[in-house]
């Protein structure tokens, strides 16, 4: 195992001196491979903090291009990036931040046909997607691949997250067995989102990844964490594995990704109403 060079020791010194983390933690991060699905509001802080911390390989999946309306929260992108693929824009910032990190970009739609192949090389998966279709697909694929998933969703002033460790804690479907019917739950582009909310939740996701890779601390496995930005409060709900869960229960009905529709794309937002 290669030791850290002098530049790396200086770069990571403020976390290496934390006793629970140390050189051993740094080495584990350096060997870590993390796939971040979505390079938007959540993906921005996750990817930035993981790159800054020295996670060895970061994969980015996103098929979108940067839009001007993304910039109030998707802080990895700049005004000059409008129109560029998000993965390209994000990868450039990550490489600039930390050239020791290997960044792999996947400018593709995450679908049932490529999900397992995309996940295969990675140790930990981060859910930073913006719709329920992709969220359930990513969740099921991660579970079937046996990969820990750091899950978060945001809306308006709120964020909700948990960590799913396959066959250990509750999975997302233990709590929310089926996705809501399309159109019944608003997206950020419909209901709005205050920028720091994904900033907070994405940063917490990065912390979960660091704990999963290094083995320190307690993850959110078995717990839902809810951030109420308007009330400035965190709440927590213990969640147990559901024996009737269609994915991880005693008689699972989901054994592959064949139930997920291919080619689904988040519908474009309706134009703003004119007063």
């Amino acid at each position: 195992m290669p030791l850290l060079n002098e530049e790396e020791i200086r770069r990571y010194s403020r976390q290496i001196i934390v006793p629970e983390f140390g050189v051993a933690g740094q080495m584990k991060l350096g060997k870590g491979k993390v796939l971040v699905v979505g390079a938007g509001g959540l993906g921005s802080p996750v990817a930035l903090y993981l790159a800054a911390a020295g996670v060895g390989t970061i994969g980015l999946v996103d098929m979108d291009v940067v839009d001007l309306s993304n910039l109030q929260r998707q802080v990895i992108h700049g005004t000059g990036d409008v129109g560029r693929p998000k993965v390209e824009s994000a990868a450039e910032k990550l490489r600039r931040l930390n050239p020791h990190v290997y960044v792999e970009t996947h400018h593709v739609a995450f679908g049932p046909d490529n999900a397992m192949d995309l996940l295969a090389p990675y140790d930990v998966v981060v859910d930073a997607v913006d719709n329920f279709h992709a969220r359930y697909l990513l969740h099921d694929a991660s579970y079937l691949a046996g990969k820990p998933l750091v899950e978060a969703g945001v809306l308006r002033f709120e964020g909700l997250m948990t960590t799913v460790v396959p066959r250990k804690g509750a999975c997302y479907r233990c709590v929310f067995p089926e996705p809501p019917p399309p159109g019944t739950i608003p997206t950020c582009q419909e209901a709005g989102i205050i920028g720091p909310i994904p900033g907070v939740m994405g940063t917490l996701q990065a912390m979960e990844v660091i704990k999963l890779l290094t083995g320190i601390g307690e993850t959110l496995s078995g717990r839902l964490l809810i951030f109420d930005g308007l009330g400035a409060s965190f709440r927590e709900v213990a969640i147990a594995r559901n024996p009737k869960c269609p994915l991880c229960g005693e008689h699972p009905t989901i054994k592959d990704l064949s139930g997920h529709a291919a080619g689904w794309v988040c519908p474009p937002p309706a134009p703003p109403a004119t007063p």
Binding site: G41, D130, F132, R135, A152, G153, L155, L160, T187, A191
Partner: peptide, 9 residues
């Protein structure tokens, strides 16, 4: 506390 899922990212 009453929850529905939030799916934005």
């Amino acid at each position: 506390l009453v929850f529905s899922p939030v799916g934005g990212g």
